[in-house]
C-alpha cells in the first residue's frame, strides 16, 4: 500500500450504502449499514460466517429480488449519477447489467468458452460477430485467460480447469464493462495456485474497475484490498484502510477475529 494515504474525502466515491436494512422474511440480516465504496479501489468484506457479508454484496445487484419474501430498506447510491439501486422504480435487470458478479463456485454455462464470455453482450442484444469477437478477446485478455483459451474458444467451457473456469467467469463479468465487479468468495472452491492467480488478477483489475470482494480468508483480504469492512451478525463493526484494520483495529472484536481468536 502506497504509504502517505490520501485523505478519504479526496477520493472519488463509486457507491455508498446508507441506512441499509435487509430482511429475509422475519429475519433481519443487515442492520443499518453505512459504508462508502471508493472508485477503482478494492474493498473487502470480512467476518465470521453468517455475518451478512454475502447478503450485503448481493444487495448491490439486487440478487435478493429473485426470491420471494426479501425486503430492502435504506439505499445504495451509485455514483456519479447518484441513483438508488434499491429503489423500487429501478429495474433490477438494469442494475445487473451495470454491475457484474463472480460467484463462489465457478458457474460456466453449458456453452462454448466464447459463448460464455459473450453471454452478457448477447443478453443486451449485441449480436454482431465483429463486436462480440473484439469484446470477448478483450475480456479474456483482462482475465489473463486469452493465451490459454484462444485456440479453444469453441470448446465446451466445462473442459477448463477449476481456476480457468473461474477466470472465464471473471472474463464473462468484465465483457459487459461493469461499473462495479462483485466477487462472492471467488477462490473458496479453488486450489492455492489458482487462488494466487485470481488474486493477482484482482490487483490488476482495480486499475479499470471498482471491486467489492467477500472473503472468508483474512490473508486474502489483507493481500488484495485497499479497504476492509468487518461485519458481525448483520452489523458493520469497523471500516477503514486495510492496513489500519489489520495493524491497529479500533474494536476489540475486530482484533479478536483478525488474530484468529474468534470466528
Amino acid at each position: 500500500m502506497a504509504d502517505p494515504k490520501p485523505a478519504l474525502e479526496s477520493l472519488p466515491l463509486k457507491a455508498h450504502a446508507a441506512g441499509l436494512n435487509f430482511h429475509y422474511g422475519d429475519f433481519q440480516a443487515l442492520k443499518n449499514i453505512d459504508m462508502p465504496i471508493y472508485d477503482k479501489r478494492v474493498t473487502a468484506l470480512i467476518g465470521p460466517s453468517g455475518c451478512g457479508k454475502s447478503t450485503f454484496l448481493r444487495c448491490f445487484n439486487r440478487m435478493h429480488d429473485l426470491y420471494p419474501g426479501n425486503r430492502y430498506e435504506g439505499e445504495i447510491r451509485l455514483h456519479p449519477d447518484n441513483v438508488n439501486l434499491l429503489d423500487r422504480a429501478v429495474d433490477p435487470i438494469e442494475v445487473r447489467m451495470r454491475l457484474s458478479m463472480v460467484f463462489q463456485k465457478p458457474n460456466p454455462f453449458p456453452k462454448s468458452i466464447f459463448e460464455n464470455v459473450a453471454y452478457g453482450l448477447r443478453v443486451r442484444g449485441i449480436n454482431q460477430r465483429a463486436v462480440l469477437e473484439e469484446k470477448v478477446e478483450e475480456a479474456l485478455r483482462s482475465a489473463a485467460l486469452w493465451n490459454e483459451a484462444k485456440d479453444r474458444l469453441h470448446e465446451q467451457a466445462f473442459n477448463l480447469s477449476g481456476g480457468q473456469q473461474q477466470r472465464m467467469c471473471i472474463a464473462r463479468a468484465l465483457a459487459t464493462e461493469p461499473e462495479i465487479l462483485l466477487f462472492d468468495e471467488p477462490t473458496s472452491a479453488l486450489d492455492p495456485i489458482a487462488t494466487a492467480s485470481i488474486e493477482e488478477l484482482i490487483a490488476e483489475l482495480k486499475e479499470k474497475v471498482t471491486i467489492l470482494i467477500v472473503t472468508h480468508n483474512m490473508q486474502q483480504a489483507a493481500r488484495v484490498s485497499d479497504f476492509t469492512a468487518y461485519m458481525y451478525i448483520g452489523e458493520l463493526i469497523e471500516y477503514g484502510w486495510t492496513d489500519d484494520i489489520f495493524i491497529k483495529p479500533k474494536h476489540e472484536q475486530t482484533e479478536a477475529y483478525i488474530t484468529g481468536r474468534f470466528g
Binding site: 445487484n61 440478487m63 429473485l66 435487470i93 438494469e94 445487473r96 447489467m97 457484474s100 458478479m101 460467484f103 463462489q104 463456485k105 458457474n107 454455462f109 453471454y119 452478457g120 443478453v123 443486451r124 467467469c169 464473462r172 463479468a173 459487459t176
Partner: peptide, 15 residues
C-alpha cells in the same frame, strides 16, 4: 440444474 447457473445468468441482467 443448479441454482448457481441460473444466478450466473440473472446476474448478467438476463430475464
Amino acid at each position: 440444474v443448479p441454482m448457481n447457473l441460473r444466478e450466473g445468468s440473472y446476474a448478467m441482467g438476463a430475464t
